[in-house]
C-alpha cells in the first residue's frame, strides 16, 4: 500500500522537477537574448574599427535590451531562491498571498506556453497561517495546474487568498471550462494526500466556476 508520505514525496519531486525545468528554460532565454545583444555590440565595434559609421541608437537599444534581460533574470533567480528556501523550516507563519504571488512568478512561463493569463490581487491583505510552506506551494501549484486546464475559452485564471471565519481560503476563479471537466477525478490521490497533510479541504463549485481550498490558521485545526 502506498502511504500518504510516499505520495507527498513523489508529488513534491514532480513539483520541484517541473518548476526547475521551466525556470531553467526561461533562464536560457534570458541568456540567449543577452548573448545576441552582447554579440551585436561586438559586431558594431568590429564595423567601427573598419571605419563604418555606427548609429549610437543601435548601441543604446542593444544595451537597454541587455539591462532589461538582466532585470528579468534577477527576478527569476530571486523567485527561485525564495522557492529553494521554503524548505528551510517545516512549519512557520506563512502569508498565503505571498505564496500565491511566488507561484505566479514561477508559473508565468508555463501559463504563457498554455496561453493562459494569470490574475492575482497584488494589494491583497496578508492571510497568515502556520503551515509547511513548501507543501503549501506544492498544493497551490497542482491546483493552479488543474485551474489552467479549467480556464476554458477565456483562458484566464484568477486566484487569491482571503480570511473566512476561522479559516483561510484560497480561491481559483473565472474557471469557465470547469463545467466541461470531470470534477469527479479531482482532487486526485496526490492532491488528497497533500490536503490531508496540510489539514486542508478543497471544494469545486462548478456553478460558480470556482475551486476553494480551506486551510486552518493553525496546522491541525
Amino acid at each position: 500500500m502506498i502511504s500518504k508520505t510516499d505520495v507527498n514525496v513523489d508529488t513534491a519531486l514532480k513539483f520541484f522537477g517541473n518548476m526547475t525545468a521551466s525556470i531553467s528554460h526561461e533562464v536560457k532565454n534570458v541568456l540567449a537574448i543577452i548573448n545576441e545583444n552582447a554579440g551585436l555590440l561586438g559586431d558594431l565595434c568590429v564595423m567601427a574599427e573598419k571605419g563604418h559609421p555606427i548609429d549610437p541608437a543601435r548601441i543604446k537599444t542593444a544595451s537597454q535590451k541587455i539591462i532589461k534581460q538582466v532585470q528579468r533574470g534577477d527576478t527569476i533567480i530571486k523567485n527561485l531562491n525564495k522557492f529553494a528556501h521554503s524548505i528551510d523550516e517545516p512549519d512557520c507563519d506563512v502569508n498565503i498571498n505571498e505564496i500565491l504571488f511566488l507561484i505566479l512568478g514561477l508559473s508565468e512561463r508555463t501559463a504563457v506556453m498554455r496561453g493562459v493569463k494569470l490574475e492575482i490581487d497584488e494589494k491583497a491583505e496578508p492571510v497568515v497561517v502556520t503551515t509547511n510552506p513548501f507543501l503549501l506551494e506544492t498544493l497551490v501549484w497542482f491546483f493552479l495546474d488543474y485551474a489552467m486546464c479549467a480556464a476554458g475559452k477565456e483562458k484566464t485564471v484568477c486566484f487569491n487568498a482571503e480570511k473566512k471565519q476561522d479559516k483561510a481560503v484560497i480561491v481559483f476563479s473565472k474557471l469557465k471550462g470547469l463545467p466541461g471537466l470531470q470534477p469527479d477525478n479531482f482532487p486526485g490521490e496526490r492532491e488528497k494526500a497533500l490536503l490531508a497533510t496540510l489539514s486542508a479541504e478543497a471544494t469545486i463549485d462548478v456553478a460558480e466556476e470556482k475551486i476553494n481550498i480551506f486551510i486552518g490558521f493553525h496546522k491541525g485545526i
Binding site: 532565454n29 540567449a32 537574448i33 545576441e36 545583444n37 554579440g39 551585436l40 559586431d43 564595423m47 542593444a62 535590451k65 532589461k68 534581460q69 504563457v112
Partner: peptide, 15 residues
C-alpha cells in the same frame, strides 16, 4: 516567441 532574441539574431545575420 522571444522577440528580442529573433530580432537581434536577424540583425546580426544581416550584418
Amino acid at each position: 516567441d522571444e522577440k528580442e532574441l529573433v530580432s537581434t539574431l536577424a540583425e546580426r545575420l544581416s550584418l
